[in-house]
């Protein structure tokens, strides 16, 4: 019971982070709008900074209202779904591993080519999601990547980068 209370309180507090995010974003938008150079070719009474001011204001107001709501005990309802089990706390480790696999994909795609980065992304994601059948997962990852490459290259006419393998294959 007490652990549930604790997590409940922590979750309530973490939502203040959303309000903070909105506030930071709001300040950013407003500061940026204020620093826009005066429009030379301004066309009509409203310059390019007016709508950003409105949006920034909306961000700040929602940030404030959200903070008040959270402090009063209001809570955003986490999204549910078919494969989602909200009765246990979220496992952020999985998300971190997935983000890492995705980051590896970002780093590798232009250097090592899509065949490598795609395989790493798929295999890494499958690992992050809890599968431990390394060989089968690896084979599937390679197959999916190669098929996708062929599909994009020949059916859609979008060649994905091959990296160092270019010319070899």
């Amino acid at each position: 019971m007490s652990t549930r209370n604790l997590t409940g309180r922590l979750a309530g507090k973490s939502e203040l982070g959303v309000a903070g995010f909105l506030a930071v974003l709001g300040v950013l938008v407003i500061v940026e709008a204020a620093s826009l150079p005066p429009a030379i070719g301004q066309f009509g009474p409203i310059g390019p900074d007016v709508v950003p001011y409105i949006v920034g204001g909306l961000l700040l107001v929602t940030a404030g209202l959200l903070a008040v709501d959270v402090l009063r005990g209001g809570r955003g309802e986490a999204e549910s779904g078919e494969d989602i089990d909200l009765s246990v706390p979220p496992e952020w480790r999985t998300v971190l591993l997935l983000a890492a696999a995705f980051a590896a994909n970002i780093v590798l795609i232009d250097t090592a080519g899509f065949l490598v980065s795609g395989t790493v992304l798929f295999w890494g994601s499958v690992y992050a999601l809890g599968s431990r059948r390394y060989l089968r997962d690896g084979l599937i990852a390679v197959a999916v990547t190669v098929l996708t490459y062929l599909l994009f290259a020949y059916s859609l006419g979008v060649p994905l980068p091959l990296g160092p393998l270019d010319g070899v294959i």
Binding site: F102, I109, F114, L121, S131, T145
Partner: peptide
Amino acid sequence: PRPYLYAGILFFASVGAYAVSS
């Protein structure tokens, strides 16, 4: 199997977004 399903979603999301402008 769910790992394949969600890995596949991330995979195709990445391919699609990259294909926009390489």
